[in-house]
């Protein structure tokens, strides 16, 4: 019951600061731009590229899988940054302004407070992600060929799990640190670091959460059990750690 109360309050807050609006819109734009630019790349180069008169460029039309991969690549770069910036203050800002004291005076446990935040954040993320990737797929099947469905579902699920991991990391840092900028920097370093580590040392790091976005781009169907399991495990671990941290320290002050 306490969890429901926190979720309701958090939803209200999310509406009040228009996060329900701008995060989905941003992902919508990201998903929209990539297929369009891929399709009209040669026209754009001709118009604005400053090429000499009479230059002929042949750009082979990308396959729909390539465009899908490029869209996910956009999500991985800009999407990650925006997700972290959107949720960096979810806990730290309330802690800084002293709102948590008012809230936790009532018999609300730290765990339900943390999970309430996490659930609402992930819901906003899920809606944004689905909208963004949905419009990207719509444009891809309009401008290119439709993508085969079964491989797509797996890829989407893997990518969603990776974004859930980003939310978990950001919320955890938000619990530990009071300054929003430090939260953002730490979360971005951890998330991008894990991902770069996984793509540089493919042989030893293929089981880490950082491998998930690359697997999703490649629409892999094999050797995906370990990274998925390790990601779920890491999310559970950071959740448990932050609740423990809140309990063991003078977190309210």
């Amino acid at each position: 019951m306490k969890l429901v109360m926190i979720i309701k309050k958090e939803c209200l807050e999310t509406f009040r600061i228009h996060r329900w609006l701008w995060l989905p819109v941003f992902f919508l734009l990201l998903g929209l731009m990539q297929p369009l630019t891929s399709n009209f790349l040669s026209d754009i180069l001709e118009q604005f590229g400053g090429l000499p008169e009479g230059a002929v460029i042949e750009i082979p039309a990308p396959s729909s899988e390539e465009v899908y991969g490029a869209t996910l690549g956009q999500f991985t770069q800009l999407g990650t940054i925006v997700l972290v910036l959107a949720f960096m203050g979810s806990i730290s800002e309330e802690r800084r302004s002293g709102e948590v004291k008012m809230l936790l005076l009532r018999p609300v446990s730290y765990a339900s407070y943390w999970f309430g935040k996490f659930i609402v954040s992930s819901t906003v993320m899920t809606v944004s992600f689905l909208l963004g990737i949905g419009i990207a797929l719509f444009y891809i099947q309009l401008l290119f060929e439709p993508i085969l469905m079964p491989a797509l579902y797996g890829s989407l699920a893997m990518y969603w799990l990776w974004m859930l991991f980003i939310i978990a990391v950001t919320t955890t840092f938000s619990t530990l640190i009071k300054r929003q900028t430090v939260v953002a920097v730490c979360s971005l370093i951890v998330v991008f670091g894990m991902q770069m580590f996984a793509s540089m040392f493919t042989s030893i790091a293929s089981w880490t959460p950082g491998a998930l976005p690359n697997l999703a781009v490649a629409m892999a169907t094999e050797e995906i059990v370990l990274p998925i399991a390790s990601t779920i495990f890491s999310i559970a671990l950071v959740a448990w750690m932050s609740v423990l941290y809140m309990k063991k320290t003078d977190w309210l002050y």
């Binding site: 228009h18 609006l21 701008w22 819109v25 734009l29 929209l32 369009l36």
Partner: peptide, 26 residues
């Protein structure tokens, strides 16, 4: 091939909505 204007139309609409909401809030 669909018309270019129809393809870019959602972009313009989204942009417009975003600006209006920001202005109302401001």
């Amino acid at each position: 091939m669909p018309d270019l204007f129809m393809l870019v139309l959602p972009l313009i609409i989204i942009e417009f909505i975003l600006k209006i909401i920001a202005f109302i809030d401001l």
